[in-house]
């Protein structure tokens, strides 16, 4: 049914993005200049995914406030990431601060209401 077509379609298009360039890679020669450009790919792509996810928790408006638990968690993760170059610690502290802050906000909202 529809579900089968949807998943099949998604699988095919995703594979057709990932694989063909690699399949033909033996015949592709990239200039040193182009290789340099590619060095910027990971931070550019990852940042473009993260920033809206953190700053736009509702999906359409930027929320620069202590009310945004994602922003607080992200700032904690950035601080820990620069302080200790430890990925697991960065993820752990970021998540802990996010959950802690979210719980705190919920408690405050409960008291106010």
């Amino acid at each position: 049914m529809n579900e089968f077509l949807l998943i099949g379609g998604m699988a095919i298009v995703t594979f057709l993005i990932r694989y063909p360039v690699l399949a033909m890679s033996g015949r592709i020669k990239l200039s040193p200049q182009f290789l340099k450009i590619l060095g910027y790919v990971p931070p550019a792509v990852l940042t473009a995914i993260v920033v809206p996810a953190v700053l736009m928790p509702e999906g359409n408006q930027i929320l620069l406030s202590y009310m945004n638990a994602r922003l607080v968690g992200a700032m904690a993760a950035i601080a820990v990431g620069f302080w200790r170059k430890d990925l697991l610690l960065t993820i752990g502290v970021g998540m802990a601060v996010f959950f802690g802050w979210q719980g705190l906000l919920a408690m405050l909202a409960g008291n106010a209401g």
Binding site: P43, I49, R70, G73, A74, T90, G94, M95, F99
Partner: peptide
């Protein structure tokens, strides 16, 4: 619960070394 935030912190950790 906002568990999807795990992906955001993971990517933050991946960007920092750059």
């Amino acid at each position: 619960w906002g568990l999807d935030f795990a992906m955001s912190v993971t990517f933050i950790g991946m960007v920092i070394p750059y």
